[in-house]
Amino acid sequence: MDKHFAVYLVFFVCYAALLALCLAMDRHHAQVLHGKPGRPRRLALRLAGGSLIGVALWLCSLAWGWAIGPVAWFGLLSAAAFALVFLLPYAPRFAGWLIVVGPVLALPPFFL
C-alpha cells in the first residue's frame, strides 16, 4: 500500500473509531447529534469504535509491516484524536461531518 495513501486512510479510520467512541458518551453525543444515545446505540458505537481501532492497526501493518506499523498506528491515533478533541468545542457539527467529507476529498486523488 502506498504510504501516503495509508496515512490518510488510517487517519480517517482512526477518526471514525474515535468519533464512534466519543458519540457513545452522553456529553459528546449531545454536542454533535443532540440528545442522549439509547443503550443499543451506545453499545453499537462502542463496538464499532473498538473494531475500527483494530482495523486501523491491521491497515498499518499492511502498509508498514509489523515493526513500524504499530508506531504509525499510535501516531495516527493521536493525530486523529487531536483533530476530534479540538473540533468538538469549536465546530461540533463539523466534527461529525468530517468523517463524511474528509475521506471523499482526501482519498480519491490517489486513484487518479
Binding site: 504510504k3 501516503h4 495509508a6 496515512v7 508498514w64 513500524i68 508506531v71 504509525a72 501516531g75 495516527l76 493521536s78 493525530a79 487531536f82
Partner: peptide, 22 residues
Amino acid sequence: ALHFVRFGGYPMKWLYFLSGMA
C-alpha cells in the same frame, strides 16, 4: 531507532513532529 525516527520517511517524521509539539 524509535527515538531517532530514521524509519518511515516523511509521514513518520510528521507524526513525530506533531506528537513532539503536542
